[in-house]
């Protein structure tokens, strides 16, 4: 702590009391604050406003009124069978994706953490899907999981019929596995960071107690990386809730018969393609409320166990 300079001290103190000790910070942070207000806060409010109006796209310059319709859009969203199907699809996605991501990321991070040889090669291999554009890797998955693709060629008579991406029961699981593969590198990175902070003594005292590798993993590693697990679960939930590119391209717009439609794909189709932004805005609000509730429950659950 430095003391305020003596000269002009009183005035300086009064300024400091209001603006803080470094008012220049307000100027440095201003562009970001303005950006958040324009691109984040205002659209957020606007989204809520649209969701309570009968809102439609009008010709440029035309002045139309958007009557307040209360919860009509929300009722329309909740009673729409396509919305229920999309939320069901996301549930299937999350049930496969979240546990698979968490378990594989932690196991691979623990294994990678103790690797001495070929570190660079192994790291690059696991991270590279994460840095590559979804659109690019979707291209090759389409090729692999096509009805006469390599996967079915290898499976031969075991190949599912109808094939993976056009099979109502398999389209969403394939997307869930795709996203797990695509994002895993990032989550491995998070776990590797967390593993650096696990005190070595914990492992040593577990060894003294005669614990094997597996029991050390359960009794030392898993509890020690719990905050990272909370982060991994929340981030993979958010990724899942935001699913768009994969159902749009991999299953040709959420097919077959809507079995892989995601809420965000539905927002695009209804809000922008079919010109019902009010419906899409209400759907977006409900989606985010859902994500926040699940994230909060997850956070409380992990907090309580601490």
């Amino acid at each position: 702590m430095t003391t305020a300079p003596i000269e002009g001290g009183v005035r300086r103190n009064r300024v400091a009391a209001f603006f803080g000790r470094h008012p220049v910070g307000m100027i440095l942070a201003a562009p970001y604050a303005v950006y958040i207000a324009v691109v984040f806060a205002y659209p957020l409010g606007f989204s809520l406003w649209i969701s309570f109006q009968d809102y439609f796209f009008a010709a440029p310059g035309a002045i139309v009124d958007h009557p307040f319709v209360g919860f009509d859009n929300y009722t329309a969203v909740l009673s729409d069978p396509a919305v229920r199907q999309a939320f069901g699809n996301i549930l299937v996605f999350l049930v496969i994706n979240v546990p698979l991501t968490t378990a594989l990321a932690l196991l691979l991070a623990v294994a990678l953490n103790r690797v001495v040889h070929a570190r660079t090669f192994l790291r690059v291999a696991f991270y590279v899907p994460y840095v590559t554009a979804s659109v690019a890797v979707v291209g090759v998955w389409l090729f692999l999981f096509n009805s006469d693709g390599l996967v079915n060629t290898v499976l031969g008579p075991l190949a599912p019929d109808p094939s993976w991406l056009v099979n109502e029961g398999l389209a969403m699981p394939v997307i869930a596995v795709f996203v797990t593969w695509k994002q895993l590198g990032f989550f491995i990175l998070l776990y590797l960071a967390a593993l650096q902070n696990v005190p070595k003594e914990l492992y040593e005292s577990a060894s003294v107690d005669g614990a094997g590798a597996w029991s050390k993993f359960w009794s030392v590693t898993v509890p020690a990386v719990r905050p990272a697990t909370a982060l991994v679960v929340i981030l993979s939930l958010i990724t899942g809730a935001n699913l768009f590119t994969e159902p749009y391209l991999l299953t040709g717009g959420g097919g077959p018969s809507g079995a892989s439609t995601s809420p965000v794909l539905l927002m695009y189709q209804r809000g922008i393609q079919q010109g019902e932004p009010d419906f899409a805005a209400a759907l977006g609000v409900l989606l985010v409320i859902g994500v926040l509730i699940v994230a909060f429950v997850n956070w409380r659950f992990i907090e309580r166990r601490d």
Binding site: A29, Y32, A33, I36, V39, F40, Y42, P43, L44, F46, S47, I50, F57, I234, I238, A241, N242, F244, V264, M267, Y268, G271, I272, P277, A280, A281, G284, V285, L287, V288, V291, L292, A295
Partner: peptide, 23 residues
């Protein structure tokens, strides 16, 4: 501002999809 930094990271971009498109 710091609380906002944390909040912005939790709110998915997709919520802003429709309003940003309209704006």
């Amino acid at each position: 501002l710091f609380v906002i930094v944390l909040l912005v990271q939790v709110i998915p971009f997709q919520l802003l999809l429709v309003p940003l498109y309209v704006l």
